[in-house]
Nucleic acid binder design. Structure first.
Length: 426
RNA sequence: GGUCCCAUCGUCUAGAGGCCUAGGACAUAGCCCUCUCAAGGCUAAGACACGGGUUCGAAUCCCGUUGGGACUACCA
């Protein structure tokens, strides 16, 4: 293992693992695997009021479904508060941080004034050089940002980005309740975990100069940064619930294959010539930060669906049989513990997979072949099949499907099984 | 408002100054295959945001304009 390369995915458990987060995780994972480095999973749950254990489980489940395995973690920041306190103490001691006695209300008032008068909304530094601190008051701790000069971020994707230090404000690194804040813990953890490359969304690019100064305060070398372009909705605004499903597990529910989602996500801002379909091994071999584009990408459900049907068509029937099972159970097509002839199921799937774009559709088609007792009710069928497919099912003239039709009408499964064998072999 | 990022078909993208009459993929349309629906094959339509430079030569480099996005919390 290459000890030099260490990357991490650091979601906050305030919601599901969404499309954008999944792609960030994927790129980190690919980078680690390509370089034979370490991929670390870290849960950023310092905001206790918004973080839940349930979301942690959901995020981990999403990672597992996508087959993104990690080498270290999952670490939880709430279990590391002692470490952060030490780091804060150190900064206080060397004079890189100071106590701030301003109340949130006071700060909010100043911010409103700044907005209405069109001035920059920056902390005024009131407590920066306080001579006689009041030790009994609840205090937050602020980091002392340099106030002049430039900070340069040499980003592996965006290139050289320059920030004026005068724009940076003394950010709060520890709240008055003693809990540390994001921009600080990120750095503390990345130092502590010896992260070599930070690959994250470019919504963090503006945070980077602040974090660089924290590295400097600790006299630590900064890691390499790579800021990925955002994924947008069809209207080019940030992807959110109103654009449809954004959580990774929702795609599992809808019958998408993890390989299809991974293949779709990897092609957002990344390309390898004209190739569209990649195996996992190919991705690991080809992946490089160098051919990641700089511009945001619009999420396109049509192309994802096309990839999914491609992967369904090219999957082994045995594997599909296994994957479609939860859908059959959920729909009540088979009972939870029903004994089902897997060979028969596989052969039926073989006949249907070409026209199923997802596992949900596949299950719906299967309904008509599995339920012996169910007569076809066109009204009911209409709910699950497209008109053409319904027509196709009902007007069966194709010899092959005539046989299955008989089977479905429910005479004898072994009889049907024999006929499917004949059909699939010819 | 301030700071930062971005800009090739509707969408994802190829493009590293001449291989560009700008290539591929999704979606769209047509044709072929076919007893239906799919799948597959072929074809069509469809883009370098705009304006200035630099250069013998610009999608590609530089500047500006316009448009989009992100950040601007005792959120992450």
């Amino acid at each position: 293992m290459n000890q030099q390369i260490r990357v991490r995915f650091a979601p906050s458990p305030t919601g599901h693992l969404h499309i954008g987060g999944a792609r960030t995780a994927l790129f980190n994972w690919l980078f680690a695997r390509h370089h034979r480095g370490a991929f670390i999973l870290r849960i950023e749950d310092t905001d206790r009021s918004r973080s839940t254990d349930e979301y942690i489980d959901i995020i981990i489940e999403g990672m597992k479904w996508l087959n993104l395995d990690w080498d270290e973690g999952p670490f939880r920041q709430t279990e590391r508060f002692d470490i952060y306190r030490e780091y804060v103490e150190k900064l206080l001691k060397i004079g890189k941080a100071y106590h701030c006695y301003c109340s949130p209300e006071e700060l909010e008032r100043k911010r409103q004034i700044a907005i209405s008068s069109g001035l920059p909304m920056k902390y005024d530094g009131k407590c920066r050089n306080l001579k006689s601190p009041a030790p009994d008051m609840p205090t937050a701790v602020r980091f002392k940002m340099p106030q002049e000069g430039l900070t340069i971020v040499n980003d592996l994707i965006k290139g050289r980005v320059t920030f004026e230090n005068s724009q940076l404000e003394d950010l709060i690194i520890m709240r008055s309740d003693g809990t540390p804040t994001y921009n600080f813990v990120v750095v503390a953890d990345d130092i502590d975990m010896k992260i070599s490359h930070i690959i994250r969304g470019d919504d963090h690019l503006n945070n980077t100069p602040k974090q660089i100064h924290i590295y400097n305060a600790f006299d630590c070398e900064t890691p390499q940064f790579a800021h990925l372009p955002m994924i947008l909705g069809h209207d080019k605004s940030r992807l959110s619930k109103r654009h449809g499903a954004t959580s990774v597990l929702a795609y599992r529910e809808m019958g998408y294959l993890p390989e299809a989602l991974v293949n779709y996500l990897v092609r957002l801002s990344w390309a390898h010539g004209d190739q569209e379909i990649f195996t996992k091994d190919e991705l690991i071999e080809y992946f490089s930060l160098q051919n990641i584009g700089k511009s945001a990408a619009v999420f396109n459900p049509d192309k994802l669906l096309w990839l999914n049907s491609h992967y369904i068509m090219n999957s082994d029937v045995e594997k599909l049989a296994e994957m479609v099972m939860p859908f059959l159970i959920k729909k009540g097509i088979i009972a939870e513990n029903q004994d089902i002839d897997l060979l028969w199921l596989s052969k039926t799937i073989h006949l249907l997979k070409e026209r199923s774009k997802n596992l949900d559709e596949l299950a719906n088609s299967l309904r008509y072949f599995i339920s012996d007792s169910v007569e076809i009710d066109p009204k009911a069928a209409e709910k699950f099949l497209k008109p053409q497919s319904l027509e196709y099912l009902c007007e069966i003239r194709n010899a092959l499907f005539t046989q299955i039709f008989h089977l479905r009408l429910g005479r004898n499964r072994s009889e049907g099984s024999r006929k499917i064998s004949e059909a699939t072999e010819s």
